[in-house]
């Protein structure tokens, strides 16, 4: 399976994502500079964390209107898996691929530490390797991770089973303690916690690698006939 890690000016978890896919997951991956890539050539698109365009104006807002996001939207519409982590999630929200918006953390400070998450939906292509309701350790590292949506949107997310991860101890004030959501079609996942930073036990947790393994497994089942 071939992953594209989209690199915006100011992305800073791009190499971490690349490392997790290449070295830990042992799948193919390319770092794709926002101006030069053709995303059609890839099986999955990863939008990494960081501070794209300095997070000036609003986190992810400038990256959301960049040309490569038109490609991301087209690929997403065709059902290709798209994963946005941290700043990548913010970009997905700003571009309208996922509903809602990000506000500054309730305590107004950047925070970085391990958080306990609950797998709220293990039936997405990103989470089949987890048990429903299982708790996992993922680090968070953000200043604006306070997920906001209005009641109507929240009800819709719940009705469609779009809430994939929730925080056990809501650290940032997110609506419904939401840590990650998918779109209605289930192929675009945005989440604030970092699965790529939880991909090896030596750096604190290996719980995140199963997210990538789920993707690979589901993709293989759908695309590779003779294995």
């Amino acid at each position: 399976m071939k992953f594209a890690v989209v690199v915006f000016p100011g992305s800073n978890c791009d190499r971490d994502m690349y490392h997790a896919v290449r070295e830990v997951l042992q799948e193919e991956a390319d770092l794709v500079w926002h101006e030069s890539g053709n995303l059609q050539d890839y099986d999955a698109i990863l939008l990494p964390g960081g501070f794209s365009y300095g997070d000036y104006l609003r986190s992810g807002a400038v990256a959301a209107v960049s040309d490569i996001m038109d490609q991301v939207k087209r690929q997403a519409a065709q059902g290709k898996p798209v994963l946005g982590v941290c700043n990548g999630f913010q970009v997905l929200l700003e571009s309208g691929l996922l509903p809602g918006a990000m506000l500054p953390n309730e305590k107004l400070a950047f925070m970085c530490h391990q958080e306990t998450l609950k797998v709220a939906n293990n039936r997405t292509m990103f989470t089949t390797e987890y048990n429903q309701g299982e708790t996992v350790q993922f680090p968070i590292a953000h200043g604006e991770g306070n997920y906001y949506c209005d009641d109507k949107t929240k009800a819709k997310l719940e009705a469609n089973d779009q809430i994939v991860f929730t925080y056990q101890n809501n650290p940032n004030g997110s609506t419904g303690a939401i840590a990650g959501i998918v779109n209605e079609q289930g192929n675009v996942l945005g989440m604030m916690p970092h699965p790529e930073r939880a991909s090896e036990a030596i750096i604190g947790s290996a719980d995140g690698i199963r997210l990538f393994q789920s993707l690979v497994k589901n993709w293989r089942e759908a695309h590779v006939v003779n294995v």
Binding site: H19, F110, C112, A141, E200, I202, I203, G204
Partner: peptide, 27 residues
């Protein structure tokens, strides 16, 4: 103090802030 620092980006931090010394692996 250190909760405000991103101490984990680059995925090398083996010993995070709060210990005698920080330790980062070399991939």
């Amino acid at each position: 103090v250190y909760d405000q620092y991103d101490s984990m980006v680059q995925t090398n931090t083996v010993v995070t802030p709060g210990s005698d010394a920080a330790v980062i692996r070399m991939k």
